[in-house]
Design a protein around this nucleic acid. Structure first.
Lengths: 229, 229
DNA sequence: TAGCGTCCATCTGTATACTGTATAAAAGAT
DNA sequence: ATCTTTTATACAGTATACAGATGGACGCTA
């Protein structure tokens, strides 16, 4: 019902795209838990569409790494092990440092100011206890601003992919570990280094920033794996 | 061992997978040229399937970066500009060096020997003028062997993705520029550095190896862009 | 002739219906 | 009682059919 209305409102989007958005959100928020099966017929009925757009949406989500699609067996929400998180965050560190390196020289004072605005909004959102979508979005907007002059569209897409994919763990982390309280200071420090155009120092700091988050989340995941075992 | 696995894998391939393989090959060999439209109905009829598996195969290929899929407008073979090739090869250099770094210490003499065998086969294939699928496959098999102990599955998948995507340009390069004649020597040198466990030197050399190929292919692409303009 | 709207051909997007596979439950054999 | 083999069922894969979007040809107006 709601879906039909939103189709009316946003007519240029295909049903497949809409279904993909809904499912993506449900996976990222944890409403669909890791490992749980995604039945095409059930989803189709719930969203008032046929199975075709559901299938195509699931294929898209598989490409994004959020879903596993096994022939004749169906789709499940991807389960991510601690070692996989390890690798993903290492990749992020590597790629984001590369982006920053290519972007930093070209960043203008305007860029830094909008980054600062984003940072303030981020802190406000965190202070308001807004642990939901907003903080994750603002966080990647801040980072994205720093990379915005890199002129490396494919690398950015890759990084955004990985960020999205790890977002659900970041959220979990914030929720359960009450964590990332050091993040605001780290962001400010990073911004300061960028403003000073200290390329190597900024990249190193960024790598440590990402690696630090990795370690926190890994601990959390290992704890959870032990509990479920 | 492999034989047993391949027997065990009496995998029932879906039509979607078969279609994807066919189309992928036709794109990589250049039978479908950059920018050309991929009509669902035509492909379906040609392959004796309905449009559904064709659509799903096209979606998969879009995720692999070989196809652009625009709503209501249809799919086209992706056109890759010189600047995109630039970025892709930079990414490859970055990621492959990372893989080699993680793999190198754990590589055994057995690994080096099979790498050497692959290298000989590669040279034989090139000497036989086999500019088709075989050389590309052997080339990535050789590189893959060097990364095989990295225990970084997602990074490897990414690299393989990029390799596949740039394969058609590599082939083009070999065909038109008569090129990559320096590659055999470079491969031998790389293998020597790996055997000597000179991590930094090997990684640096690998980066130069990839960057060198990039420059050659870029020149070729720029020339082609000028011709078509 | 240039510009605009309408209509039509063509293609994509999606629903419905059918086919085939995997798996769990039931029946049979050892 | 355990292990096969069979059967049933639920689900995914695919074909067919229909609905909707796009872009261009055509004629109309100024």
């Amino acid at each position: 019902m709601q879906l039909i209305e939103s189709i009316m409102a946003i007519e240029h989007k295909t049903r497949t795209q809409l279904v993909a958005e809904v499912l993506r959100e449900k996976i990222l928020t944890g409403e669909f838990k890791s490992g749980s099966p995604l039945r095409q017929a059930a989803l189709a009925e719930e969203l008032n569409v046929s199975r075709i757009p559901v299938r195509e949406a699931l294929l898209q989500l598989e490409a994004e790494g959020l879903v596993n699609f096994e022939a004749h067996k169906g789709a499940t929400v991807t389960e991510v092990s601690a070692s996989q998180v390890d690798e993903i965050f290492d990749l992020r560190a590597l790629l984001e440092a590369e982006l920053l390196r290519h972007s930093l020289e070209k960043l203008t004072e305007d860029d830094f100011q909008s980054a600062e605005v984003l940072l303030q909004e981020l802190e406000a959102a965190m202070a308001a206890g807004d642990t939901q979508a907003a903080t994750g979005h603002l966080n990647s907007a801040f980072h994205g601003k720093l990379y915005s002059r890199a002129e490396r569209p494919q690398t950015r897409e890759l990084v955004e992919q990985f960020s999205k994919n790890s977002e659900r763990y970041v959220r979990m982390h914030i929720l359960l570990a009450g964590g990332l309280n050091t993040a605001p200071e780290e962001h400010r420090e990073l911004l300061k280094l960028c403003r000073a155009k200290q390329v190597d120092a900024a990249c190193d700091y960024l790598i440590r920033h990402i690696t630090g988050a990795k370690e926190d989340i890994k601990k959390l995941l290992i704890k959870m794996e032990e509990q479920s075992a």
